[in-house]
Computed example of a mutant assay.
Amino acid sequence: MTDTFRVAFVCVQNAGRSQMSTAFAEREVAERSLDGRVEIVTGGTDPADHVHPEVVEIMRELDIDLSDRTPREVSTAELEACDIVATMGCSTLSLDADVEVRDWALSDPDGRDTAAVREIRDDIRERVATVFDDIEARVEAA
């Protein structure tokens, strides 16, 4: 591990699941006082033009504003520089580096009703917290 622990959240469009994951990860960094010790990377292999409106709406319920975020493409080199890469269940990601890949197999929230998007969001929040339990332990041990 380098001085900074790198974690990535990746899906095809970077417009739903990975955006929610990134927002929850940012909160975890702040709440666990990991600023400067953990870097968050997010992106997609075929980014959309904007974050899905139903995702923006459902995250607002938790006072998280994703309306100004723009999906971006992520490179293999960026991901290979990470310690953990969480894919959302839509990836055939193959990395050559020593990267721990966690495939979460989550449903796509795009076009889903509010209850379904809320369920996906809550699942993501729990998964991100679990990842940060692992990250915090590794950072503290380093």
Results as ranks from 00 to 15, higher is better:
E80Q: 13
S75R: 03
E61N: 13
M20C: 00
E140Y: 04
D122T: 10
F9D: 01
V41F: 01
A86Q: 11
V7P: 06
D35H: 15
W104G: 05
T114P: 06
V101Y: 07
R125D: 10
C82L: 03
S75V: 00
A105Y: 11
H52T: 00
E39Y: 01
V51L: 00
V51K: 00
I135V: 15
G16R: 00
T114L: 12
E28R: 09
Q13G: 08
D110P: 02
A116W: 00
A137I: 10
F132E: 06
A137W: 14
E57K: 12
A77K: 10
V131F: 15
Q13A: 14
A129P: 09
R112A: 15
A25M: 02
D108Y: 07
V41W: 04
F5G: 01
E119I: 11
C82D: 08
F24P: 03
D103L: 07
D133I: 11
E136S: 15
E100Y: 05
V56G: 04
T70Y: 05
D108Q: 12
S91C: 09
A105F: 13
I135S: 13
R112K: 13
N14M: 03
D68Y: 05
E28Y: 07
F24Y: 15
F5P: 00
D108P: 11
D134C: 05
R60N: 12
E39T: 06
V29L: 05
V51Y: 00
D35A: 13
V131D: 13
M88L: 01
F132Q: 07
A105D: 14
I40G: 01
D65F: 07
V74A: 04
I64P: 02
A116H: 15
E78P: 02
V139P: 11
R17S: 08
R69P: 05
V99T: 10
R102Q: 14
P53L: 03
C11F: 06
D134M: 11
Q13F: 03
V7D: 09
A25R: 02
A30C: 00
D65H: 06
D122Y: 13
G43W: 03
N14Y: 03
L106I: 08
D63R: 15
M88F: 02
E57H: 13
E26M: 01
D133C: 09
R37E: 12
V12L: 09
E31A: 12
V128H: 12
T87V: 14
V7F: 09
E28G: 04
I135Y: 09
R102W: 12
